[in-house]
Amino acid sequence: MGARRKNTFTTFLSDVIDDSKALVDDLIDRAQEFEEKTRDAATSALGDEDSSSPSADEVAGLKCALSELTEKVDRLAAVKAGAK
């Protein structure tokens, strides 16, 4: 059998902080992706004189990115609320 990890308050706190860091990093990555997709959609919509709106694929991509970002923010809020 392997050695058991001691469950101390500092270990718990360290795990929460590490998970929070990972979540924030993921949120930043998702926000950057969302920003890039938004910029691409806006450029495409403004640059295409034949079309006055973004394509259905672009809108679906933006909705998906926004949904994922919202989920991450909700998870971060829950982690922070639990750490208080």
Rank of each mutant, 00 (worst) to 15 (best):
E33Q: 15
F12C: 05
K84T: 07
D57W: 03
A41P: 02
I28E: 12
R75E: 11
D40S: 10
K72D: 13
G82T: 05
G2P: 15
F12D: 09
N7C: 08
S53R: 14
A3I: 12
D50G: 04
A78S: 12
S14I: 01
K6N: 08
R75F: 03
L46M: 13
E49F: 13
T70M: 07
Q32N: 15
L76A: 07
C64G: 11
T11G: 15
E68T: 05
L46C: 05
T8K: 00
A56I: 06
V79W: 05
S55C: 02
F9L: 15
R30C: 05
A65I: 00
L76E: 08
E36M: 10
K63S: 12
S67D: 10
G2H: 11
D18W: 04
E58N: 06
R30G: 05
E33N: 12
E36W: 05
S53G: 04
L76S: 05
L23F: 01
I28W: 02
E58I: 01
T38A: 03
D25H: 05
D19S: 10
P54H: 04
V16P: 02
A83L: 04
S44N: 10
F9C: 07
L62T: 02
L62I: 06
T11S: 14
A83V: 02
D74R: 14
E68H: 00
P54Q: 01
D50Q: 08
L13P: 00
K84Q: 09
I28D: 10
D29T: 08
E58R: 03
A77H: 09
K72M: 15
E71F: 11
A45Y: 02
D25Y: 01
V79P: 01
T8D: 03
L27A: 04
R4A: 15
L27Q: 06
K37D: 08
E58V: 05
L62Q: 03
A81S: 07
G61I: 01
A56W: 00
L27K: 03
K72G: 14
K6A: 14
L13G: 03
L23K: 11
D18L: 13
S20T: 14
C64R: 15
A42K: 05
G2L: 15
D40R: 15
I28R: 14
C64I: 13
A3T: 12
D57K: 08
R5D: 10
L66E: 13
R5P: 03
Q32A: 12
C64W: 10
E35G: 06
T11Y: 10
F9Y: 09
K21A: 09
K37S: 08
T10D: 14
T8A: 04
S51A: 13
T11V: 11
A65H: 00
S14Y: 01
